[in-house]
Design a protein around this nucleic acid. Structure first.
Lengths: 201, 201
DNA sequence: CCCGCTCTGGAATGATCGTTCCAGAGACAA
DNA sequence: TTGTCTCTGGAACGATCATTCCAGAGCGGG
């Protein structure tokens, strides 16, 4: 029962995060095993032993992204505070992340952009992540509307779809060289359109 | 001077469009020369003779997309008719295109998603196309605002950035299996947010 | 007719890919 | 120490990749 022998010596999570960064920056096809091995700081054989093949590693990395980045956005949306403040916080955070010089966009948006519709597993995972985002947005929107903090002439579910689309679109813009100016502008316009006042900080 | 010999026998534009479709659907890396040759309906050697190597072909296809799809959107935005109607027409058209079952999203959005920031030529081309779209949007928005057809409390340039982001986001959503429901919902919310009445057709 | 251009497709090249096999070294339990 | 598991990295495999060379055939102008 008790496993004898040398124990695993590298941080599995750290390695996965390094792999995620490579896939994130270069996409699935363009990321080579050699690159992944170097970035993860482990041997090639350890990679195959621990994570299986390339596609499985990609899937695991995508799932990890969902449990980290997406989940943190979900936490903000469903967290404490006024609903309207939570919505604004999400966009402020996006603006900050997507406007930095070496921004890589959004991993999920990238996965969506090169989605192979024949790959059922990836499709299902992406769909699940996206749906959870939309649901969280819709809930926060509905709360903000009942609290009279947001115009209530728009269906929360449809507005939620539209706001995630904005997020993905800004994530694409974040990959372009001009991201430092475009992304904040897009966020400002979005908040203005929603009637969310921008604090003078 | 006058060139003797067998004349080129295939339609160069049609071949380019077929290549564009392949790149569009699968992305740059995943599209192989064999696939391109088959789709274009020409011999392998003819491809290299006419279009150069793979990257050049990709660049040409992207440029062609700019001269076709992007330009047609530009025509709508700068065309005749009330400014507000032109804006609505663009989104209606997007909704229709992105909601069809075998939708491939937007070629430029795909190019953006897997953009290699070290490739100056592709970056420049993408940036040019995107900028022309933003400018056309901004002009139409400004016109609609002066004509009192659109709320004028938002900067046209920033709103234009945001609307192209929506377009790209919807193009990503268009690649997902659930596009038939999400895309129209997103468009409806966008038009509602802008205060553009949806005709009951 | 023949020359110059095009077309096509098989064959070969060299590179890179993902993946597996293997041998040696390291680390812990019994 | 011995055994068992892990680590690493070299070597090899087969597949696929983009690209080039080449030989044969098609077509039009001189």
């Amino acid at each position: 029962m008790c496993p004898a022998g040398r124990p695993k010596s590298f941080d599995q999570t750290a390695a996965l995060e390094a792999a995620m960064a490579v896939f994130w920056a270069k996409g699935y096809e363009a990321a080579s095993i050699a690159e992944l091995v170097t970035a993860m700081g482990i041997g090639r054989q350890s990679l195959y032993d621990t994570f299986g093949d390339k596609r499985t590693l990609y899937l695991t990395a995508l799932r990890h992204y969902g449990e980290r980045a997406v989940a943190s956005t979900l936490d903000v949306l469903t967290g404490p505070g006024e609903p309207i403040d939570r919505l604004r916080a999400v966009f402020d955070n996006w603006a900050e992340v997507q406007a930095c010089p070496d921004c890589k966009g959004c991993f999920m948006a990238g996965a969506l952009a090169q989605l192979d519709r024949n790959d059922a597993e990836v499709c299902a995972l992406v769909d699940e992540l996206q749906q959870s985002l939309i649901d969280a947005f819709a809930a926060a929107i509905a709360q903000a509307q009942s609290a009279q903090q947001l115009r209530d002439d728009i269906d929360p579910a449809e507005l939620a779809v539209m706001l995630t689309a904005v997020g993905h679109g800004l994530a694409l813009a974040g990959r372009a060289p001009s991201n430092a100016t475009t992304v904040p502008a897009g966020v400002r316009a979005t908040l203005a359109l929603l009637g969310i006042p921008v604090p003078t900080h």
